[in-house]
């Protein structure tokens, strides 16, 4: 891009982490009860795309934890691996056992479902994010 929007850039630097944290919160909470990997992934994509529009697509890509294609593949691998602990407990693949962790006053429930959702989150962020950044890149080239 030829011209830079300074106010938008400053604003975006602060907004990006907030959006990512919001997407994490959505990952843990879900939009309507337990975890929501898919919708949280889309929120992260929105953050990356906004970043790419204000800066550029390669800077947005560097802000992601891995390159988009690798990120989505790692996500699918995490999701596939989340089905394995159940197998060692003698349950069918992709069953999700729950454990309760007592932390003083309150109880924390943990499950491999969280891992699965994390995998979905990363896969969506990587795949859709990669597509969006690529589209923005083609717009940049034509400017």
């Amino acid at each position: 891009m030829t011209s830079r929007a300074h106010i938008a850039e400053v604003f975006m630097r602060g907004l990006y982490p907030v959006l990512i944290i919001a997407s994490f919160w959505m990952l843990l909470r879900g939009h309507n009860a337990p975890g929501g990997g898919f919708i949280a992934g889309l929120m992260a994509v929105a953050a990356s795309s906004a970043y790419a529009l204000i800066f550029n697509s390669s800077k947005a890509s560097k802000k992601m934890p891995l390159l988009p294609a690798r990120l989505s593949v790692s996500g699918v691998l995490v999701a596939l691996a989340s089905g394995l602990p159940a197998v060692f407990q003698g349950l069918p693949y992709l069953s999700h056992p729950w454990w309760t962790l007592s932390l003083g006053g309150f109880k924390l429930s943990l499950s491999t479902v969280m891992l699965f959702d994390l995998g979905v989150y990363l896969a969506v962020w990587g795949a859709i994010g990669g597509i969006c950044l690529h589209l923005i890149e083609t717009i940049e080239e034509n400017l």
Binding site: A69, V73, V76, L84
Partner: peptide
Amino acid sequence: MILPVAPLLVPLGTSLLCTLTSN
């Protein structure tokens, strides 16, 4: 409890690992 899905998991895993090592 994983053997019946192994014909799916093994090539899928291989495919994903091959993507990660694409360089």
